[in-house]
Design a protein around this nucleic acid. Sequence first.
DNA 1: TAGCTTGTTAGTTA
DNA 2: ATAACTAACAAGCT
Length: 271
Amino acid sequence: MPELPEVETYRRYFEATCLHQPIEAIDVEDRKLLTTDYATLTETLIGQTFVSTKRVGKNLFIYTNGGSTLHMHFGMTGDLEYYHSSLDRPRHARILFIFKSGFNLGFICPRKFERIGLVEGVDAYLKKKKIAPDALDISLEELTYNIRKRKSFIKPVLLDQSTVAGIGNWIVDEVLFQAKIHPEMLSNQLNDSEIGRIFSATRYVLETAIEHEANYGRFPQHFLIHSREWDVSPYEDAGRHKRCPCDKVETEHMQVGGRTTYYCPECQVLR
DNA sequence: TAGCTTGTTAGTTA
DNA sequence: ATAACTAACAAGCT
């Protein structure tokens, strides 16, 4: 589920656990997960310490005391877990950063869509990958420009990381719901009011999600996300409801751009 | 069980 | 050349 709020939560977790400890070893179960060859990765990082972090969209960058930059992308199912005893090694922790302190950071990737590697620099990486400013940093002007220059359904345009960075399939549905915009509105036909609502809703949804450490079950009841079907604990399941918060109709779902899309046919009408 | 899945990108088409 | 769209990627879950 790693959209922007998860990655921000991982970033804070990493900062709280992994800084300033010499790296003793790196264990890689499957080298396909690396974007840097294994020898270079270990030769560069062993003996160094992590000193600070930066997040842009769904990308986490970690700086070391030796001037290197490590990049992590969490794909669809990535996670981090810091632990001590090797008996506690989490399931699917396919890359381990083993610190001299005896603690370990597990990079968890059940479906192997995740990636780790060294990058030359954050700005160069973002430019090469055509990643737009972070969804919490982008200006209304730049967002407006990036939306209007495209001619497609607004949902896939917002999912495109070159429009704005950090929005994934669940957040985009929530943003469009809060902004009261149908996911199949054409991006180049949105007026200033509508784009303004997308801009505000993006910040509101992301800030709320980060506050709750991306724990969707705890989101406010007027969020559309409670209509989604997902794997939750029985506690969270009790908060799930298919009725739109507007209380007029049930939410519906369809495919937009090949992705499952939830929306309220009453609140989000095609114009 | 066969079909679904949160992200990204190579490949195809226009 | 560029933009839009689709399918594929890997593996786990139901």
